[in-house]
Computed example of a mutant assay.
Amino acid sequence: MSRDATFEDGDARPLRLVAMDQEDLQVLSALCQDAVFPATEMQWQPKQKRFGILLNRFRWEDIPLADRAGRTPERVQSVLAIENVSRVASQGVERGDADTILSILAVNYDDTEEAVLLTLAGDGALRLSVEDLEVALRDVTKPYAAVSGKVPGHPE
């Protein structure tokens, strides 16, 4: 009988991070940059005041190791969970379309508006009104080779 792979099978360790202030959120934002996900993988649970996304995160933290070992860059499925969400607004996002693939450019906090802002490629955005800042990033699968085999790039 076969079993699912675990992080213990490889040398990678899953990320489990929580941001409770803007400085922490900058770290999560950097780790989420270039994460991709189908629009259908977003879920807001209003009663629990939670918004979550199952995303395919590029493993930026692994680039130095991959370069030294000659490995292909990797991605990993992760959950980005924002707590204390009272309202969700979007711009340029077709939420119900499974064929729409979104890409995160940045995750920021606007303290004057008390909102977490997810900036997406292609002028898309999500604005999550929050009572308190609490954002978690948790890897949920074993890393896998990035399909493109390349590190994401951005034109200057």
Rank of each mutant, 00 (worst) to 15 (best):
A106K: 10
W44Y: 11
V27G: 05
V79T: 13
A66T: 10
T40A: 03
R59G: 06
K150N: 10
R13K: 14
A66P: 00
N56S: 12
V116P: 02
E23G: 09
E8T: 14
S148L: 09
D67Y: 10
A12G: 06
K150V: 05
A69Q: 15
R127L: 10
Q45L: 14
A125L: 01
K142C: 10
R68S: 15
L102C: 13
K150I: 01
E114T: 13
R138Y: 00
R68I: 08
T141R: 01
L102F: 03
L31K: 05
Y109Q: 01
D62I: 00
R138L: 03
E74Y: 14
S129A: 10
M20G: 08
P46F: 12
K49A: 14
V76P: 11
P143S: 02
N84H: 15
P64Y: 03
V85D: 07
N84V: 07
T6K: 15
L118V: 06
V116I: 09
L137T: 02
Y109H: 13
L117P: 00
K49E: 15
A30L: 13
A69E: 15
R95N: 08
L102G: 02
A66H: 04
V36G: 08
K49G: 02
C32H: 03
K47Y: 09
W60T: 05
R59E: 13
E23A: 14
D21K: 07
W44G: 06
D34I: 02
I82D: 10
A125S: 06
P73N: 07
E61Q: 15
Q48W: 02
N108L: 10
M20C: 12
V18A: 08
A98V: 11
R127I: 06
V85Y: 07
K150F: 06
R138K: 03
E94T: 06
V79R: 14
L17A: 06
H154V: 14
V116E: 03
S148A: 14
L133P: 02
A106L: 01
S78N: 09
L25M: 03
S29A: 06
D24R: 05
L28K: 08
D123S: 13
D132E: 12
M1H: 05
D34Y: 06
L31V: 01
V93H: 04
V18C: 09
V140R: 00
F58K: 01
L133C: 05
Q43F: 13
D123L: 09
V135Y: 05
A5I: 02
G153T: 14
T72I: 11
D62A: 12
T119Y: 04
P143I: 06
A69H: 12
G149Q: 04
G124L: 10
D34N: 10
T141D: 06
T119R: 12
I104F: 02
M42T: 13
V147D: 11
A5P: 02
